[in-house]
Write a protein that binds this DNA or RNA. Structure first.
Lengths: 166, 166
DNA sequence: AAACGATATTTGTTTAAACGACATTCGTGA
DNA sequence: TCACGAATGTCGTTTAAACAAATATCGTTT
């Protein structure tokens, strides 16, 4: 008779509203993300690739170093090299060495990449609307505010253990 | 002079609140998820594995078929076989054939698995609190409600294209 | 009971993410 | 100018996710 399991069993449903919110967040994000992946798949693009191309479009013809692209991605990808490999092979971006600093590689979106984004943007915008418009204007604003707030905890980076806890 | 890119550039910042909410959702979920992955890593467990074990604990000694576990996971994993392989090899669960129906494989959490969860639960709960408690009780309830609402659009599955749009 | 379709899991293969080691280049200071 | 440390990418390898095909079992019908 494992009292361990028995004790825990009691607390299973939800260990407080924070855990419930966390699980809802992951579940919802995953569900919506999968729909985006499905939308992008027939165009031969991953969601990471799509995000990278949008970042590069935002950077304009000046392009952006690999590291900057990696830092701005929603899911920080430490391996931009291979991501850029695939996008370059598909002709969606171009790679150049930075004139002043030969360490950095500048990524620029190509005309083909711009055209692909121009085709994809209406689709992803429409998808987001189908997914979320029923929350209403006030609901969306509230959700946005709460999510931003969640990403910015008041103190002490949550990854590092609290320095004292006697 | 690519007017295509130029036109789009205007609309880049955010194509409406739904897109802004979507990106915030993905960004926030990814940030919090990575912290959970970091927390679990030293214990040799992936977040999917951790979720699967919690589902099995909730199922009790009766266990649960593979397919049921897959359906209840936050990120529906179509490949439970290999997930169960790893967890079984680590001694965290046991596999049995269902007596009445030899097609289905019943997964049961082991004593070792229960003990691991008992050690991990306080850590994940504390992490969730560090991540989200600053939203406050009202904020958390509001967030939970909005996320649940987001997962349940009023009509027409968002994955299938709307049947008519002339 | 033999055959058919449905269900549940396994297996093989491709693809991408994760992690670490390595190489190149730059800036700085002896 | 030479050496040293930091910054930036690249590459090799391990691990897991994604997808399709194959296998085994069941329930039902003929």
């Amino acid at each position: 008779m494992p009292t361990l399991a028995h004790d825990i069993k009691q607390t299973v449903p939800f260990a407080g509203p924070e855990v419930e919110a966390y699980l809802n967040l992951q579940r919802t994000a995953d569900q919506l993300h999968r729909q985006t992946v499905e939308l992008l798949k027939p165009h031969g693009l991953s969601s990471t690739g799509y995000n990278a191309l949008r970042i590069l479009r935002g950077a304009g013809p000046a392009g952006l170093p690999c590291s900057d692209v990696g830092a701005r991605l929603v899911a920080h990808d430490p391996d931009i090299t291979r991501l850029a490999d695939r996008l370059a092979e598909a002709g969606l971006l171009v790679r150049d060495r930075k004139p002043g600093d030969r360490r950095v590689v500048i990524l620029r979106i190509s005309q083909l990449g711009l055209e692909l984004l121009a085709r994809l943007d209406p689709l992803t915008v429409e998808l987001a609307r189908r997914q979320l418009s029923h929350l209403g204007g006030a609901g969306l604003e509230s959700l946005i505010r709460l999510l931003e707030q969640a990403r910015h905890p008041p103190i002490a980076s949550p990854t590092s253990p609290s320095p004292e806890k006697p």
